[in-house]
Design a protein around this nucleic acid. Structure first.
Lengths: 235, 235
DNA sequence: GAGTGGTCTAGACCACGTG
DNA sequence: ACGTGGTCTAGACCACTCA
């Protein structure tokens, strides 16, 4: 059962992305939208809030909801977005080479977190436009995932987790830094002689706050880029 | 006039940060909170939503709102947070050296955005624990800010904008990448011979969607780090 | 003054987790 | 069966923008 507010959000987001509500135009007023969708004003407002935090619109008191111009950018690290979702939205030629899948007892210490269950380690090289771009090292808790096949690893882990296993990924903490990496890794990513890579460490949690996945992503700094939409916090 | 929901949000956030509601404990239920604060359940829910998107709590259906363990981390790039706010919260010895303040007609082209008004250019070197850390180059629209004194630039631009000028900073788009910079800049930031710096370009907008500020921040990659809290988007 | 979004209320029904 | 959060409604009053 999809909530009415999510239907409205998706419908409006689609109309914004397809230019039916073009940048700098105003959406219908909250009362009009309530009428259009047969919903209460509160429900419409909830949708508009979601669009606001996605960076699709900006609400202006006394005037209305104006469509922003960032629908093309995307490329966010500050939502949980996967390699495949990214490439789909950017239309790049992407390839995944699975290097390793094996069960491990523990996770490297530099993920500062308690971990008791065994994990499945998945090591994958991401290749974009024939250039090595990212090395992903994932650790997935065996509490929730019993096995990962090479074809799943090559296709999309998240698709498998969310659609096949019904897991609800909820939130993540990401730690971004620049590191000098080993010669092996430098060669794999075709790095400059300085061997510097952008390291994104992620800890991913489910709805019930249980730790589900740890990832270390090593990006080639010459190709690394992300664009982020941020709002000034009230607090 | 502060809204009741913001009072509740701030009160709960404070109690979480001060350990009155410690990590892994549950907040009182929504109905209890409504009673405690003399507010309707909807108002309380709005507060809990804000705490959720700040990464302070996680709501679990049928159980309650559990306090997460990230209140210490902070250091987000994906909210709009200023140098001074950061250092205050981290308790570092910080210093700002103002290198240049002057009015310019235009902004460097690589900020891909229309700009007609003249801007005030402010160039500042940020020094943390006696090590040069960041070079900030700001361009502030003269439409909203007529003058910037050296003491304001040394202290806090945002404090001046928000508290003295009453400007409402609303949202920003940030573009993060790794760049090889000029020798001058490399020397200023004490970079390695590879001259790589992390460049964060920001475009900052006001509530009425007008472009207010552009910033290029060059970070020493050896000290650059940010931690980000992200939620999986429904859309 | 009419219309817009911002805040708040009181109530309803549902799905979920626990005992 | 009960309490929890999730969704939704219908109404109210306010502050703001603009003609």
């Amino acid at each position: 059962m999809t909530a009415k507010q999510d239907m409205i959000t998706r419908d409006l987001a689609g109309k914004i992305r397809h230019g039916i509500y073009p940048p700098k135009s105003f959406l219908p007023s909250e009362n009009e939208l309530a009428g259009l969708y047969g919903a209460s004003r509160n429900t419409v407002r909830k949708s508009l809030e979601d669009l606001t935090s996605l960076g699709l619109i900006q609400k202006i008191k006394g005037k209305g909801s104006i469509v922003l111009d960032f629908s093309r950018l995307s490329f966010p690290i500050s939502r949980i977005t996967t390699f495949n979702e990214l490439n789909q939205s950017l239309g790049l030629k992407a390839e995944t080479k699975v290097l390793e899948i094996k069960e491990v007892k523990e996770v490297p210490e530099d993920f500062s977190c308690e971990n008791t269950e065994p994990f499945i380690k998945v090591k994958r090289l991401r290749i974009i436009d024939d250039e090595p771009d990212v090395l992903d090292v994932d650790y997935i808790s065996t509490k929730y995932v019993k096995e990962i096949s090479p074809s799943v690893a090559e296709h999309s882990l998240y698709d498998y987790f969310e659609n096949d296993l019904g897991l609800k990924i909820s939130y993540a903490v990401k730690d971004v830094s620049v590191q000098t990496v080993s010669e092996d890794l430098a060669q794999m990513l075709d790095l400059d002689p300085d061997r510097k890579a952008v390291l994104v460490k992620s800890m991913v949690y489910l709805e019930d706050t249980s730790l589900f996945q740890l990832t270390a992503s090593y990006h080639n700094p010459n190709r690394f880029r992300f664009i982020d939409f941020a709002r000034r916090s009230k607090i």
